[in-house]
Structures are given as C-alpha cells and as structure tokens.
Amino acid sequence: MKKTKFRFPARINGATVAKKTFIYVVLIGLCLSFIIPYFWMLITSLRTELAYNSTGFTLLPLDEQGHLSLFFGNYKEAFTALNLGQVLLNTLIVCVANTFLNLFLNSLAAYAFARLKFFAKNTIFKIILFSMMVPGTVMLVPNFLICDYLGITDSLFALILPFVMSVYNIFLLRQQFLGVDKGIEEAARIEGAGPFRIYLRIVLPLVKPMMVVLGITTFMWNYGNYLWPYIVNVDPNLRTLATSLAELTGSGYDLTVQLAGAVIVSAPMIIVFFILQKYIVGGTMEGAVKG
C-alpha cells in the first residue's frame, strides 16, 4: 500500500505538538458546528414552546422553571399534522417499488449493453447516455406535462414511473458487468443456459456489492425526493414524508413541532447511514470516480 510507505520523521518536539493540537482544535470546532444543530433540533423538539421561549440559549431539555424535563407533546402533534400512518405507507410503497424495479430493470439493460450483441447497440447506448446530460431540474416541467397528459398526476404512479429507471445506474452497472470474467458465462452457455438465465443466476450474483450500493442509494434518494412529489401530487393522502414535512412547515406550526417533524423524517435515514455506512460511502466514491 502506498499509504504505509510514507511517514513523517518521528520528531516529537513542541512544534509538532502545537501543530497537532491546532489541527484537532479546528476539526473538533468544525465537528461541533455539525453536531450542535442536530442536537439542538432533538432537544428543542422535546421541550414546550413556552419553555423554549422563556429560556435563552441552552442545549438541555429545560422546562420553563429551568428544571430538566422531557415533553413529548410536539411529537404527538407532529404525528397528527404529518398524517404519519398514511404518509409512511406512501413513502414505503414508493421507495420499495422504485428500489426493486430500478435494480431489476437497470441491471437487465446494463447486462444487454455489456454482453449481448444486437443491432445498433452502441448507437442506442450513446443516445441514452446523452440523456444523462439533461439534469433533473430541467425535466421537472416536461415530466409534469407528460404525467398530466397520461392522467397519472395525483397518484402514487406519478412518483414511481418517472423514476423507475436511471441511466446513471445503468452506466455504473454496465461497467461492473464488463469487469466480469467472460469464461464463466461461456461455460454456462455451453451447458445450455439461455441469456436470461446467465444474467440472473451467474452474472448478477457476481455484482451483488454494487447492487446493494445502488439499492441503498436509490431507496434513500426516493425517500428524500421533494420537488417532484410536491409538483405532481396535491392530494394530502398521497404525500410522502418529505412533502408532508414541507406542508407542516409551510402551514406555520410552532417551532418545536416543526423540529419534531424534522426529527421524525430525518432520523430513519441517519440511523440507516450509521448501520450501512460502508455501502453508502462506497457508493459515493463509486459515483464520483466514475461519473
């Protein structure tokens, strides 16, 4: 490894210590600027509006007399205001459907572009790759027009169908498939396996790590997606967690209730991040290096 080869000369003197201390102070200070907002959000969501207004800056859950106490009323109100049951269900339907459809359909197309031979393959691939240059923001208005034309606005289909595939993920998966040893496939073909069988049973398991990464990122992206659901669905029964939280803040609830809503909506993904950190960070690197 390159990393282990290089070492600073191990001098332990005042200058080095001072330098190190300085670095730690800067980094810890920066770290606090990341932790304090979240901590403040969590604590404030556990206090009453009155208590919040009657004390100055504090990071402790104090009530208006200055005693420690936890208040869960904000969460109760946020649950009702978010319409949490229905909204959670919608979010799960959209995220799960999108994740599985994405994984299946993208890998199908990616495999074809990597391994199968058919007429105009490269031309089609190039055209589709070109569409990657059209950013999502540009597509918002056109996509709204087509969904309205198809009559799928104000339904969960409007949140699933336009995102059911991703050219970018196809591109990443194709790279993976290209790296798979051809010999294994050849062997399977000689044994009489058809292309679909080879794709499903032989090649797909080999790129499982990539599939996991893409699955997680697709799920998280759909979970947090805001602008599109906001534009295309008006019906309150079709809101997702993100749009419902935006509605909560748009109708001007108390600061403490809004923060409780933000905690409810953001906590699951932050917890998932801590559990699946390896995959998420790996996904980021993959995307940045190849993209």
């Binding site: 980094l27 920066l30 770290c31 990341f34 932790i35 304090i36 907002p37 979240y38 403040w40 959000m41 404030t44 919040y52 207004n53 800056f57 998280m220 979970y223 947090g224 805001y226 967690l241 993100a242 749009t243 939280l245 935006a246 803040t249 600061l255 809004q258 923060l259 809503g261 933000a262 905690v263 909506v265 953001s266 993904m269 932050i270 998932v272 991040f273 801590f274 950190q277 998420i280 960070v281 980021t284």
Partner: peptide, 30 residues
C-alpha cells in the same frame, strides 16, 4: 469519525435539513 460526522448532512432528508436551518435562523432560533 470526523468523516462520518461531516457526512451526516448528506444523508439528511433535504426538507428536514431546511426546516432545521429555517428554525435555527429564525428570529427566535438557535
């Protein structure tokens, strides 16, 4: 550890992050 902490906003739902900042910067905010 530092990398993990700095990465938290990237996995925070954008609406939730905006709500957090909106309240932090409110006249009676953090």
């Amino acid at each position: 550890f530092f990398k993990t902490i700095f990465y938290i906003p990237s996995v925070t739902v954008s609406v939730a992050m905006m709500v957090m900042w909106k309240q932090m910067l409110a006249p009676d905010g953090l």
